[in-house]
Design a protein around this nucleic acid. Structure first.
Lengths: 130, 130
DNA sequence: AGACTATTCCAGCAGTCGGTGTAATAGTGT
DNA sequence: ACACTATTACACCGACTGCTGGAATAGTCT
């Protein structure tokens, strides 16, 4: 049985002005938690977030342009892109001796988008609470 | 040509029945990225995810019950709860010599919820792409 | 007060992360 | 072949993470 059916979400107003009510029957399993940890871990890095955000704005970018965009060395960028590639979040295309990266996992962007929204009005939300 | 026209509207396939539309004008700033990193970092841990998920299901739980729920030592759990508390994600209430934790940051749960959904149908989503 | 319980504090430590610098690889152009 | 560019692989290392075990703290009960 898919997880989705176990969950009931009441009142998801928008991404940002959040009033999420979670009604869950069973605690998350250790395996599920580990899978989520991996998902969040890949997003828990400033450099990778900036790379992903850059890639979300255009079709594709080569390593050197990405490196320039975030003002870091190509080695560091390549390293991070490699990890994103390993998890199937980005894909590559070679043209000459440049390698272009593009985003292929839109769900990750969904999470990123959501986090950005939450970031924006986290202050007001926090104020509303209790 | 403004970048905006390149991104247009990317309609991400409904994950968790939430339409995410990404229309961003500028690359994320370093500060924004760092703030998001912090947000994701706190979720990038199996133990914390399980604690949060447990707390999402009930009003409140004491440390020892949480420890029992995830089958770990009270010290380890207390340690993680402390971090969640430091970031205002959970709050405490003392009753006798037990301390009850409760969830106060619903935004975090929104993210958790979304990640759980994505986890569920990540296979199908990946298949659709590209 | 003394024994007991629940929780937290703290030092220690193995494991991981994320960068640097150097070298290797792959492609281009003369 | 040679020089050159873009990217990657690798060793290194400083910082952080997350657990453990022992001790300290705070409350209960007799």
């Amino acid at each position: 049985m898919p997880i989705k059916s176990k969950l009931k979400v009441k009142n998801v107003r928008t991404c940002c002005s959040v009033h999420v009510t979670l009604v869950e029957q069973e605690p998350i399993t250790s395996d599920q938690a580990a899978a989520m940890e991996n998902r969040f871990k890949i997003l828990a890095n400033e450099t990778r977030l900036r790379l992903l955000h850059n890639l979300a704005r255009v079709e594709e970018m080569c390593v050197c342009d990405l490196a320039a965009a975030v003002e870091m060395t190509p080695q560091a960028i390549s390293n991070q892109l490699q990890r994103l590639s390993d998890r199937g979040i980005v894909a590559t295309r070679r043209s000459g001796n440049m390698i272009y990266y593009r985003l292929v996992d839109q769900c990750i962007i969904g999470l990123l988008q959501k986090a950005l929204c939450l970031l924006d009005d986290s202050a007001t939300v926090r104020k509303d609470q209790q």
